[in-house]
Simulated scan of single mutants.
Amino acid sequence: MIVGVKHLAIVAAYLGGVFAKRHHATGRSLVAPVGAEVLTVGVIGDYGWTGWTPNPDHFCLEVLPQLQAANITIPMEVVNDCDPGDRTYISNATALQTDTASYVGQVCSMKNCSALISVGDNFYDSGVDFTTGGILRFQAAWVDMYSQGVFDYIPWYQCLGNHDVVKGQSGVDFETKVAPIYDDRWYFGTKGLPYYSYDLIGKDWNATFVVLDSDCFINKYQENTSVYYNEYTQKCHKQKRHQVEFLKNEFAKSKADWKFIQLHHPYMSSAGNFSELLPIVEVVEKHNGIVLNGHDHCLAHYVYNSTNYILSGAAGYPQAGDCNNGVKLGPFAKFLGANEETAANGFVTLDISKSSVNVEYYVRDMQFIDGDLYTVAHDLKPLYQFKITEHAK
């Protein structure tokens, strides 16, 4: 009888392993396939709203001011979770993330995406950390949200944004060290660092991507009144030169046809440029690289000093002002995915081959019961596209 029980247990364990989702079992990160003549990847950012519960109104409006007046130390993530704008957005933002996730999956299935590239802000409002609450957020906002169809078997090359570092080192450690073990689709390099590089390798081409944490470069995050001021941002700000040197070395040794920088904050923007990123941009320009970023909650294409800046921050809550309500100022803005009412939800795909990087902006038709805020006649076709043919140096 004992033998029979053991036998059944072994069979059950085996079948459980067979039918369980692979990405919950292996603990080893996936990577994009090698050898394709054309490899398609999606660029996605500013998306992780689901599962966030803001602090109660009573606490934010009545208790918090009293605590501040009494000079009681309040954790920055608690203050951040009382942000009035984000508290207003949360209901719509969660719905928009859900709808946009479905749309991204539909487009990526159609285009046979081999990977997704994140440009940060993976979890609003105050990120995740290695607590039960952090694990539940990770499960709800990412694992369950992106679990069907094409999402189930492609890697996500991840990047940190400002909302990901609110909890400091513990939040960074969760995304860089714990999450890749939790789900093997979540890729964050092999050394558990907030910056890393990886290559996508085709049949006769190679593309190098360098991922940096731009939070470390932002001066206003070093003010003790900032919700992003913590032991992690203080330390990495002092050591930001390490990331610049890392970028220089990775680009210098790479013989790739295409070189990309992947980070959160924009150097070119319709809302606010982060000039502190100039040391990074100078390296990119030297190597004729391409910039992928988020932070602004919209889609845009800028060209400055012959460098292409691809903004893909529209997978969660869109904000028209981030793309200047669709009004192009100056010759740098080539495309802005916004109008007077809203910015568009969507993402960007890169079709990478030996001869070119074909960049396509997919914008979903935002139909609601009371109207259509952003009309797109055929949202399974790119609303805007351009092609990069000049190789990296």
Rank of each mutant, 00 (worst) to 15 (best):
M366G: 01
Q239P: 00
G48N: 03
A70R: 12
V227S: 08
N273R: 15
E245H: 10
D81R: 11
Y362H: 08
A12L: 15
T342P: 05
H297N: 10
Q68K: 14
E390V: 13
P331H: 11
V119F: 07
I388E: 15
E276R: 04
L278C: 00
T88A: 13
S254K: 05
E175Y: 01
W205F: 15
L380K: 12
V281Q: 11
A101C: 11
C60W: 05
E37F: 09
N80I: 01
F174I: 02
S147Y: 06
V107H: 06
Q319M: 13
P279F: 08
A115L: 08
S170A: 08
G202K: 09
L292T: 06
K381D: 12
Q243H: 02
Q367N: 12
D173H: 06
P33L: 11
T375I: 13
Y47I: 09
P54L: 07
V327Y: 07
C216L: 05
Q68P: 00
T53K: 11
D99E: 15
T131N: 05
G27P: 06
N206K: 15
T225D: 10
M76I: 04
G42D: 10
E276M: 04
Y89A: 12
I261G: 07
V359E: 10
A343F: 04
I2N: 12
F174K: 01
E250W: 03
Q139C: 03
H24C: 11
Y361L: 06
F386G: 06
I10N: 11
V107N: 06
N358C: 01
C108Q: 07
P266H: 06
F59W: 10
F130D: 10
F246P: 00
Y14D: 09
Y124V: 02
D121H: 07
W156A: 06
L212K: 04
M76W: 00
Y361H: 08
Q97E: 14
D46G: 07
N92L: 12
G168T: 02
A36I: 01
L373T: 14
D81H: 00
Y362K: 04
K393P: 11
Y103M: 06
K6P: 00
A36L: 15
R87H: 06
C216Y: 03
A25H: 11
K6N: 09
A32W: 10
K240L: 01
T88N: 12
G17A: 14
Q68L: 15
M145A: 13
I117F: 08
P65F: 09
E341S: 13
K334H: 15
Q243G: 01
T73P: 00
L329I: 14
I369M: 12
G17F: 15
F368E: 13
H163F: 03
Y229A: 01
F188Y: 10
L329F: 09
V18D: 04
A32Q: 09
Q385F: 11
H301V: 05
F260G: 03
M145P: 00
Q158I: 01
M76S: 11
S353T: 05
V18H: 08
L193G: 00
Q68S: 07
V211R: 02
Q234I: 09
Y182P: 00
E282A: 09
F332S: 14
L373H: 10
V41A: 09
E231Y: 02
T88I: 10
V43Q: 09
G120S: 03
Q169C: 00
L39W: 09
Y146E: 02
L292P: 05
A252S: 14
D86C: 01
W258H: 02
G45T: 06
G4L: 13
K220F: 13
G134L: 06
